[in-house]
Design a protein around this nucleic acid. Structure first.
Lengths: 212, 212
DNA sequence: TCTCCTAGATAGTGATGCTATCCGTAATAG
DNA sequence: CTATTACGGATAGCATCACTATCTAGGAGA
């Protein structure tokens, strides 16, 4: 198919598709002439994935490129599958990692990981990300909210277990990698939205209000 | 205190503080002369909150302004407390809401809300956000991952219940509103990071790998 | 042939989140 | 009592991001 059809089938404008081609988010079609190329189903699929990551997941272009490069590395050992998802954690904030408050939060995260018996790389970016957020809550004097850390950890553990099980059940490496990416990013979006809904429901229940 | 001290105490540059003042994220200090103003502890506190929302939560400036305006509306009825958090859900994507796939996803969300007996506003933005993500997963053919919807819903329910309980326990309205904002945004950051860690752990466990 | 489409290149756009500079005034150190 | 520094306020500039528009030269289909 030519670019016009790819555009129609994916709901993405032609200039945007060209931009993604330039940025390496989408492989070039097979050239059939000096200025003609042919796109296939895999381009439609890839384009839909890109749009989902960007629109729903809010993943920046540069990160999408990295992730897709990893996705296309089909010769990954199974264990490194989730390594792909590491690219998806935004780089650490500029927070001062020498700040005692931050170091305490980071130690707290490490303690949780150890206590749960989680096998996590010592330098996983998610450790820092968790520490950032915990440190921020403490700095704001919201320590009482952090009493829910065990609840959060439990929830994270259950959810992650179910998710990884589904992905592993696929068996085929390519499908697994794609499951990791979509599951991590879009699953996060689903979970966050459900949490907001549940919060509204819980507040209505506890404060005995009538919905507006 | 003057702006230099406010800058030092909050770790935010003076130009940035001036920018926040212009943008209405930070109330002006009490003027003590034609070109002098005095800032207090509440400015340090507010500035730290602003930085946490922006740096850790990734909340855009315009949204921070809306949220803070709501926070300062101290005469809210308790039930509307969580309404403040609604401002924090990013506006719906440009996804076509007439798309049948999206409408099905939205119906699925409504079914979950009904089944759980959640009391949620019919037009809550989180309903649309959840539908966006679910529709994207279906469009990408990742239906097997959506079999985890009950697991996600359970997790969201437990977490939200604990969180709302903590906030309600505070009693004082001003502290409750601040708890809603920080809990929603920073709690989300903590939860997402913990989920990533748990995923890595679960994958190591299921695939029997050794940490690198 | 005539018109439209195409790939590829280059440049421009609008939003966001700061950052830099200037001005006239005020505190303050010597 | 000056010299230096800091201040508030205003304006303008900058870097990044994610597109979007335009141009060129070359096919494709009627």
């Amino acid at each position: 198919m030519r670019i016009a059809e790819l555009s129609a089938r994916s709901g993405t404008s032609i200039p945007t598709i060209k931009y993604y081609l330039r940025e390496g988010l989408l492989p070039a079609g097979t050239a059939t002439g000096r200025n003609q190329a042919d796109y296939g189903e895999e381009h439609v699929r890839r384009l839909r994935l890109v749009r989902a990551l960007i629109d729903v997941g809010g993943v920046p272009i540069a990160t999408v490129r990295e992730v897709l490069a990893a996705v296309d590395q089909t010769d990954l050992p199974p264990h490194d599958l989730l390594g792909v998802a590491h690219c998806l954690v935004p780089a650490a904030t500029r927070r001062d990692h020498d700040d005692p408050g931050w170091r305490a939060a980071r130690a707290e995260v490490d303690a949780i990981v150890a206590e749960r018996g989680w096998w996590v790389h010592e330098r996983a970016p998610a450790r820092d990300a968790a520490a950032d957020a915990i440190a921020a809550l403490r700095a704001l004097g919201q320590d009482d909210l952090l009493e829910n850390l065990p609840v959060w950890t439990d929830a994270a553990e259950r959810v992650a277990q179910a998710e990884v099980a589904k992905v592993v059940a696929r068996g085929e490496p390519a499908a697994m990698v794609e499951g990791v990416v979509t599951g991590t990013v879009l699953g996060e979006a689903v979970l966050n939205a459900l949490r907001r809904l549940a919060q509204e429901a819980a507040s209505a229940r506890l404060l005995g209000a009538t919905p507006g």
